[in-house]
Amino acid sequence: TPADLTKVATADVILMNGLGLEAAFAPALAQADARKADCSQGIALLAGRSGHEEEGHDHPHDANPHIFTSPAAAAQMAGSMAEVLIRACPEQTATIRTNAAALQKNLLDLEKRLAALGAAHPGACVLLQHDSLAYMMRSAGLHVMDVLQENEEQAPSAARLLECIDHIRKERPVLLIGEPQFSPRPLETLAAETGIPVIRLDSVASGPENAPADYFEQQMRNNCQILEDALSR
């Protein structure tokens, strides 16, 4: 919106996910005088499996852009954010470093919690509704056997559902994993046909306005709990 473009134009610091998620803002970002940080720098990337539509155009990416769903990657992103904030506000260096270190510790604790799941279930695989949770599954040591919905704007066809049913029956994943941002019906159909349980995890790709500062950590802790409960059944 015009208001969003004004925010970009008047910002002192712009923190970007990178990997194409800011494509709709590209012209405004190029003209902005703000200090900028591409927070995807230095993160080990996974291949992308879907296109993201912005302003009527499809922008396929070589890499999956949803890096923030891995607590370890989110900790790296926090480090990138801290460095650009320090350059913008050098008088706040000590406070920024202290807060960034505390956040990174909490995120890496969540990474360890996820990794323990994979260690307890070696070789386990899952089917994802969308590839936005692929980094979280890597953190959890769970193999992604398939992704149902390759385009986030278009529901899977009947033929795609049948293809996934066959794949599920062969691979026998431990879970079918959806997200609150997507309709539950496709996964419910797969579950009814295969008997594999469905859970929903939040990729935190969106959230409420004026979310509390620890919203991301809260949602990730909740995701860990849901996974732990589902895999302990």
Rank of each mutant, 00 (worst) to 15 (best):
I86W: 10
K36S: 10
A74P: 05
A44L: 15
F68P: 00
H57C: 00
C39S: 12
L46C: 07
A94F: 01
A47F: 00
A94Q: 13
L46N: 07
A78Y: 05
T6S: 13
V84S: 04
G79Q: 09
G48S: 07
G48L: 04
H66Q: 08
L15F: 06
L45E: 08
E53D: 11
T93C: 09
M77Y: 03
G51D: 10
A9F: 07
A74H: 09
A75E: 05
H59V: 13
Q76S: 14
G79E: 12
G18D: 02
D58S: 14
F25P: 00
A73S: 15
E53G: 02
M16N: 03
L46G: 02
G42Q: 03
E22G: 09
Q31E: 10
G42L: 01
E22D: 09
A34D: 04
A26C: 02
H57R: 15
F68R: 11
A72I: 03
R97N: 09
L21D: 04
A23T: 14
E91D: 12
T98A: 13
A78H: 01
H61M: 12
G18E: 03
K36T: 11
E53S: 09
H61P: 01
M81N: 02
A74N: 06
I67C: 00
L85S: 10
L5F: 12
M77P: 06
Q41W: 05
T10Y: 02
A3D: 14
S70E: 02
A3K: 13
A63M: 05
G20W: 01
Q76W: 04
G79M: 11
G20H: 10
S40H: 07
K36M: 15
P27K: 10
Q92D: 14
K36A: 13
S50P: 01
K36Y: 06
A28K: 00
A74R: 07
A26G: 00
I96W: 01
A75T: 10
C39T: 15
A94R: 06
L19W: 05
P2C: 01
S50L: 06
S80P: 05
I67H: 04
L19H: 02
A73H: 08
R87E: 15
T93V: 04
K36H: 12
T98F: 08
T69D: 04
H59T: 01
A28Y: 03
I43R: 00
D38N: 13
